[in-house]
Design a binder for these strands. Structure first.
Lengths: 226, 226
DNA sequence: AGGGTTACATACTAGACGGTATGTCATACA
DNA sequence: TGTATGACATACCGTCTAGTATGTAACCCT
């Protein structure tokens, strides 16, 4: 039935990678359920036969996207950046927030965090998705928690805090900030929120010698432009 | 063509309300795009003719859900609860967080915040949705900001803070907390996060007379059960 | 009382969707 | 060199979807 196509060399892992990347982009834009396989196939320059050779169904493709693309993407963007910061752990976290604030793309503002998108859409609908998403969050939180714990060990973070609890809150605050900024389509709002969070990190430092004020949250303009 | 149905009394606003309510539930569960009109119709006990008599298309139904159901639902759940709290504004905000923590339903934990769900799914896809969602967020933020401003007027909130900025952060932190808790399917995690946020509110109080520690974040169990 | 309008009800359509059946090459290996 | 298997390619299918066409009964107004 099939007439002769211009066969290219066969490179299974390249094909798989192209599928994952195209699927990621489409899912990032439209969400998993609304992502069309035909569109993904077109973007990837791959046919349906190839797709169903590599993945049993759409769900498997989507979950592979979480595991192979989204998780790494996220850990790289936050923990990767964090590792490159200097100073004590809290300063490093603040540097990470600043760094991310400075390198926001408009796509990032408009589409938000891909992991958060998947989490909100799929958690109640598919346990496979939810588990993978939860694992990715756990890694992220663990990364922050370890840093905070290190800070406690060296005395630069208040010892009466639970690192995991604080780390969880940090991740939630970051994701929430991306979320409302996405709704407002406002990079300025996102930057303001990350800055506020950064300021709050100061209150995690041990009691300062005397007279030093933790917060310096400026009276920056309250309504950031769009 | 149509054979005689058992006609009921005609109550346009009741029909419309039933449609909105059913649509809200379905959209809350599956998301807007994946919500099936047929399912909504079945739930509402209404036919397609009625639906398309009241709304020009699916998008209009969805946006009406945002305006008429979700917005009110949200303002009631947060600003409504807030108004019922006593004490100074920050204490009232803390009371509100506590109150919400105590009355979490499992549905609320698993499905998250309906406004946030819509925001994440639809903001990049449909400007009509995005605008309405952004307006709802703005009302919410304004509500918090007004309370904080009142606190500044009476001297119970530090005067060097920007109320709007803090209010925005609060909303983001709340939404983020619901979001990660949804992924983790954990009410305990949500409660821990709201409690952490509540603790942080203390640092917005004016410089305490002397010796008083703002933070008392306990070393509560770090891994809340599921 | 009757004519017009509102509020539905039913049946239908066109298109998109995920998934499958079947075929054909490229390549590794015997 | 033959052959088994992996890696695709194409065509097709049943289902579901938003939306439409058309009919009719309830209600309102004069």
């Amino acid at each position: 039935m099939a007439k002769k196509p211009a066969r290219r060399r066969r490179q299974p892992d390249v094909t798989r990678e192209r599928l994952l990347q195209a699927a990621f982009e489409e899912i990032y834009r439209r969400g998993y359920q609304a992502a069309s396989l035909d569109t993904i196939l077109h973007k990837a320059g791959v046919t349906k036969g190839a797709l169903y050779h590599h993945f049993p169904d759409k769900a498997a493709l989507g979950q592979a996207v979480v595991d192979d693309i989204v998780s790494k993407f996220l850990l790289d963007r936050w923990l990767g950046v964090l590792e490159k910061q200097g100073g004590d752990p809290l300063t490093a976290l603040q540097g990470m927030l600043k760094e991310r604030s400075l390198h926001l793309t408009s796509e990032e503002v408009e589409l938000g965090c891909p992991l958060n998108n998947l989490a909100q859409e799929m958690s109640p609908l598919d346990e496979g998705f939810r588990r993978r998403v939860a694992e990715a969050y756990a890694s992220w939180i663990d990364g922050f928690a370890k840093v905070l714990q290190g800070g406690q060990a060296e005395g630069s973070v208040r010892p009466d805090l639970d690192p995991k609890r604080i780390a969880t809150f940090l991740v939630a605050a970051i994701e929430g900030s991306f979320g409302v900024a996405k709704g407002a389509r406002s990079a300025a709002l996102l930057r303001a929120n990350l800055s506020t969070l950064s300021t709050m990190l100061d209150s995690l430092r041990p009691e300062s010698p005397r007279g030093r004020r933790a917060h310096k949250a400026g009276r920056a303009r309250s309504e950031p432009g769009r």
